[in-house]
């Protein structure tokens, strides 16, 4: 490597121009236009090297790389397409599930509503019956009370009447017969009513 470097420096430093007289007088410009044999040969060889490298290595390598890249891109696109399809089918699944769930929820709500309605009707009817029962009982109690009061009143009226009658009619009538008399009278009274 160091040898190559020194060689390169040595060659690059060779700037010794060819004596002008060599090319003939006044023909300097023309000399510039004519290819020099060793440079012609070297140029063709160097171009041959370049051409061989480009042709045999560069272009096949580049094509290989480009093909690999195209394949990779195609694989990526295919994978993306597949993933998209999967996602779509998944989305459809979810949509269907969601619709089912919504239906279910509606059904449950409806059921609950019906049950609540039933309970309401039940409670209402029971409350009505209870109220009716309470009302009946109260009516009975009232009736019983009236009867009791009526009997008591009857008793008191009878006693009072006897007492008044006894005072009025004098002592001729004994108590037992008077009572019977009063009773009959009251009954008659009751029959009239």
């Amino acid at each position: 490597m160091a040898y190559l470097y020194t060689l390169a420096v040595q060659i690059l430093a060779t700037a010794e121009p060819v004596p002008i007289s060599e090319g003939g007088e006044g023909g300097g410009g023309l000399r510039l236009l004519l290819p020099v044999p060793e440079e012609l040969i070297a140029g063709l060889i160097a171009f041959g090297i370049v051409f061989a490298v480009v042709w045999k290595f560069g272009i096949p390598a580049l094509n290989e790389t480009l093909d690999a890249r195209a394949a990779a891109i195609k694989a990526d696109l295919d994978a993306a397409e597949q993933a998209k399809q999967e996602a779509e089918s998944l989305l459809d699944d979810y949509r269907a599930q969601l619709a089912g769930a919504r239906e279910e929820a509606a059904r449950i709500v409806e059921e609950a509503r019906e049950a609540a309605e039933e309970v309401r009707a039940d409670i209402l009817s029971r409350a009505e019956a209870e109220a009716e029962a309470i009302r009946g009982r109260a009516r009975e109690e009232i009736a019983a009370e009236r009867e009791r009061v009526a009997a008591e009143l009857k008793q008191q009226v009878a006693d009072l009447a006897i007492e008044i009658a006894g005072k009025l009619v004098a002592e001729s009538l004994d108590v037992e017969r008077q009572r019977q008399l009063v009773d009959r009278y009251i009954e008659e009274l009751g029959g009239v009513r």
């Binding site: 121009p17 510039l32 440079e39 040969i41 070297a42």
Partner: peptide
């Protein structure tokens, strides 16, 4: 003479009689 700026035909060394001048070297 402008040729001076372009002609370097003194070979640095030779390979099998082929002169390696500055220009030849640069081509390779």
């Amino acid at each position: 003479d402008v040729t001076e700026l372009f002609e370097y035909r003194i070979p640095v060394f030779e390979i099998l009689g082929f002169p390696i001048t500055r220009t030849v070297f640069l081509m390779f």
